[in-house]
């Protein structure tokens, strides 16, 4: 694919309960050079994030999901347990999307989304994170 590769392989945790939505965006991000970990709900995502041997650089999560909590809950959990780890939320319900603005500095990504837009936002947030770490 003629897409710029990330400098070093960074890891995106994609959290989405619909396999037919998760599958293409995960594969797209892999083709863009990222390592992608797939989780089907917030509970799985938390398990991955608590696993010390598994590095995660950014989270891309649906808002509406089955499980003990939704994307909002996951985002709040990340802020408490993994401060500094960016979460991009995506959803379809206008109320949910507006509420996500409270949790995401850059606002949510409405569904359906262009994969390139997801890639651009991931790149931008990871570049900002790298810049912060190098200061």
């Amino acid at each position: 694919m003629a897409v710029d590769q990330p400098a070093a392989q960074e890891t995106v945790l994609v959290v989405e309960d619909d396999v037919l939505i998760r599958m293409p965006i995960a594969q797209y991000l892999r083709d863009c050079g990222y390592k992608v970990i797939e989780a089907v709900n917030a509970d799985e995502a938390m398990t991955v994030l608590l696993h010390q041997e598994t590095a995660v650089d950014i989270v891309f999560s649906a808002i509406d999901m089955s499980g003990s909590t939704d994307g909002f809950g996951l985002s709040q959990w990340v802020r408490e347990h993994r401060p500094g780890l960016d979460v991009i939320l995506t959803g379809t319900v206008p109320r949910a999307v507006n509420a996500a603005k409270q949790l995401c500095d850059d606002g949510p990504m409405p569904k359906p989304y262009e994969p390139r837009a997801v890639l651009d936002q991931i790149r931008r947030l990871l570049a900002a994170r790298r810049a912060t770490h190098h200061k």
């Binding site: 293409p24 797209y28 989304y113």
Partner: peptide, 18 residues
């Protein structure tokens, strides 16, 4: 290229949807 909601789509190979 949009990833979204329509579950009637057909996966065309590896990660492409029609």
């Amino acid at each position: 290229m949009v990833i979204g909601l329509n579950r009637k789509a057909k996966y065309t190979g590896d990660h492409s949807m029609e």
